[in-house]
Design a protein around this nucleic acid. Sequence first.
DNA 1: CCTTTGAGTGAACGTCTGTTCACTCAACTA
DNA 2: TAGTTGAGTGAACAGACGTTCACTCAAAGG
Lengths: 227, 227
Amino acid sequence: MSTTAVEVVPYDRAMEETAEAGEGESRAERKERTRRAILDAALALAADSNLAAISLRQVAKQVGVVPTAFYRHFGSLELLGLALVDESFRSLRLMLLDVWRHAPEYRDFIDGSLPIVAQHVRENRSHYAFIARERTAGPPRVREAIRHEIELITRELATDIARSGAAEHYSSKDIGLLADLIVSFVVTMAERLVEDPDSEERILADARTQLRMLLVGALGWRSTGRT
Amino acid sequence: MSTTAVEVVPYDRAMEETAEAGEGESRAERKERTRRAILDAALALAADSNLAAISLRQVAKQVGVVPTAFYRHFGSLELLGLALVDESFRSLRLMLLDVWRHAPEYRDFIDGSLPIVAQHVRENRSHYAFIARERTAGPPRVREAIRHEIELITRELATDIARSGAAEHYSSKDIGLLADLIVSFVVTMAERLVEDPDSEERILADARTQLRMLLVGALGWRSTGRT
DNA sequence: CCTTTGAGTGAACGTCTGTTCACTCAACTA
DNA sequence: TAGTTGAGTGAACAGACGTTCACTCAAAGG
């Protein structure tokens, strides 16, 4: 049906014609359904290159809608990209709440958290792939939005580390640097899981060892500054 | 002159008309000069988005040459991208030789190496920006080429660590993981230097602290496996 | 019931895309 | 000096691009 290699759940606009179903959708429901279809189509099309390289018309064709209809939902591909960033991180934050709730201690942090992150990447591969690509190659505003979200997460991890008391002898600045080190490492790990999902087991095992190396060192570290 | 915001040293094809100069260029010299101009133009144009989002015609216009002429030098933008990867890493490897020659010991490794890397990023910003973007968002073959180059560097670092004897109690597998950890970290640092060159000083200071945290831990680490 | 609203339509526009082809004409070679 | 080579030309192509505009026609609402 599609001329590209991308496979997407077709947007069934003729739903109300499916014989049996008597009840239709509300206006708002239909709009939301089209919006979702556009987001999914863009996500799928960008997966073969990136957001800046796809066209509004490709997205519209993938959705099964005329190009003009796109503008009823997004002012531009860039704004669509910002919506995808938002959507991706909303899910990610929920997952992190889970991680931080179940792993207050550091030994647990590694063995308990990494598999949860890996599972979330597995279940949201297209979103993580989107973030990994657009983080460095997206339109400037999209890049900035992603950078900001990651920074927020880093800050949350920092306060969590401070609260846990695992790094009592750290200055607050150094706690921030440690949090940044960990987040950067996990970002790299997520990139690898996205790039090669079949090697999840090995990637995860290696990451666990590396995170232990890192934290064993971090816990032995002593800040030289104050506060 | 150009319709885009990109500013590039114009490719002076009318050089032989500059009055005084009597001696011309050889055929091969002219070809090489055009090739260079194409590489530089692509690097500059891709900086505003990415390789997959620019067109052969934009590159040709930027160079000041007819679109067809492009094919005399590269079969496609993807092959041009591979040439840029090659060029970027050739320079990078020379820099690393310098680093490894001057910093055989770990304390020196941090204080001696990071500034050299930072300087190289500063002097080759466009190449590093290209690598940072195309590493995750480029055409598959370009991504693969970059991944391979980074893996080679990781292996070299691993043998260097092993040779230095700084991690005698490590299994060879764990030395590889440590090298990977360090390389990943430096890649992240380079990304940041590229993204925000004005903050070089802060980025470098933070990275130094983080690398110390990491290595202090790594040196206290003890492998549990064999070999 | 009659009016308003707004998601989706379809044609049209000027511009840009990759690629082909036959060509020129200066540098090289024999 | 005569002949070959090959980097760069310029026209032409069929198609895709973003954006505009006036439009339809069900659902929503008074």
